[in-house]
């Protein structure tokens, strides 16, 4: 994802942590490769197992899809900005888009009987349940997600 495509990226490795920054065009087809790249960076930092393959992969995929589809309205001229920082305890991923933002509290619960038959509306729910922390900026066009490498000793969700 760094040099071979129209994606630009920078990486910086420190002794106890590593950082990755990507700028992606708003194209749904690039999401899988972008997520795989971030997963491989995490693996290089000895983060592995279901929290990487399920929580991280799906949580980051959802954030990127939301940024491309809703934030940037699928406009390939608009950019999605991704930053990842991993250390021995946690991985932090920030995803920002060029959109006007949204109010996360306005998104209905997709598991209720009236919503469960809907084909959409599960992305934010999955991020909230798969990541340990999720914070939006005030405008609602930037999300910061934190995933602990080990499952915290508290119920998730």
């Amino acid at each position: 994802m760094t040099d071979e495509s129209d994606t630009t990226g920078t990486e910086r490795s420190l002794d106890s942590s590593a950082e990755v920054a990507l700028q992606l065009p708003s194209d749904l087809r690039i999401i899988e490769a972008a997520v795989s790249h971030l997963v491989s960076r995490c693996r290089a930092f000895a983060f592995e197992g279901p929290r990487l393959e399920l929580n991280f992969r799906v949580g980051v995929t959802e954030a990127l899809a939301n940024a491309v589809l809703y934030g940037n309205s699928n406009d390939p001229a608009k950019t999605v900005y991704v930053k990842l920082k991993i250390d021995e305890h946690q991985v932090v991923v920030c995803v920002a888009d060029e959109g006007d933002g949204f109010d996360p509290s306005s998104v209905p619960d997709p598991t209720t009987p009236e919503n469960i038959h809907s084909p959409g509306g599960r992305g934010l729910f999955l991020i909230q349940h798969l990541m340990d922390e999720i914070h939006f900026n005030e405008r609602g066009n930037s999300v910061r997600m934190v995933l602990m490498r080990e499952e915290p000793r508290r119920p998730r969700g």
């Binding site: 393959e53 399920l54 599960r122």
Partner: peptide, 17 residues
């Protein structure tokens, strides 16, 4: 299958209907 995201789940819901 490796993994499914919310869009993948959504397409299954839609096809089921």
């Amino acid at each position: 299958t490796g993994y499914i995201d919310s869009s993948g789940l959504g397409v299954l819901v839609s096809l089921s209907k």
